[in-house]
């Protein structure tokens, strides 16, 4: 992963809302949804601002206290996972500089750093069935859509 690389939310397939510090993300095509809190929510919101990977690491290191190498590896791991889940995609480098914007990060001079915790992407697949319950999705071998017997409550 290059320090200059940036990422964008994989819209319109992915929709997301940040609410009281928690990010709820829905993959509309897969029927999956996700939650990110604390460091994970900060990383997601930084991705939304299209900042480079290098700047993202710097931001997180300024905001959180902890081993710098561990922070970098954890951020890298989450970014990879978000890519694997197709929630974010790599941004074109040429458009990064035009579109990115940063926010002022308060440093340790004016704000006590928060203890770093390894970010975790919570993934929920329990509603994939709901998508399948949409009658069109159950298919016989003939190719003709067939409804499942039961429907959502």
């Amino acid at each position: 992963m290059l320090v200059s690389e940036s990422f964008i939310i994989n819209s319109p397939k992915v929709v997301h809302e940040t609410i009281d510090g928690e990010v709820v993300i829905i993959n509309l095509e897969e029927g999956t949804y996700y939650s990110l809190v604390k460091v994970g929510a900060d990383i997601w919101n930084a991705v939304e601002r299209r900042i480079s990977f290098g700047d993202l690491i710097e931001e997180i290191q300024m905001r959180y206290s902890g081993d710098k190498e561990e922070i970098e590896e954890s951020v890298k791991a989450l970014i990879k996972e978000l890519q694997q889940e197709e929630l974010i995609i790599s941004n074109d480098v040429s458009s990064t500089q035009e579109n990115s914007f940063s926010v002022e990060i308060k440093t340790s001079d004016n704000l006590e750093k928060i203890k770093f915790e390894i970010p975790k992407l919570e993934k929920y697949t329990d509603m994939q069935d709901l998508l399948l319950l949409d009658p069109i999705h159950e298919v016989e071998e003939t190719g003709w859509p067939k409804a499942k017997v039961e429907v959502a409550e």
Binding site: S11, D20, L130
Partner: peptide, 27 residues
């Protein structure tokens, strides 16, 4: 419960069942 937890309970099961539902519904 957090508002996020309520949103996670309300939004996916709504959106996955409604044709064309997406960003606007979620917001």
């Amino acid at each position: 419960a957090s508002a996020g937890a309520a949103l996670a309970a309300l939004a996916p099961s709504t959106i996955f069942q409604l044709p064309s539902a997406g960003k606007q519904t979620f917001q």
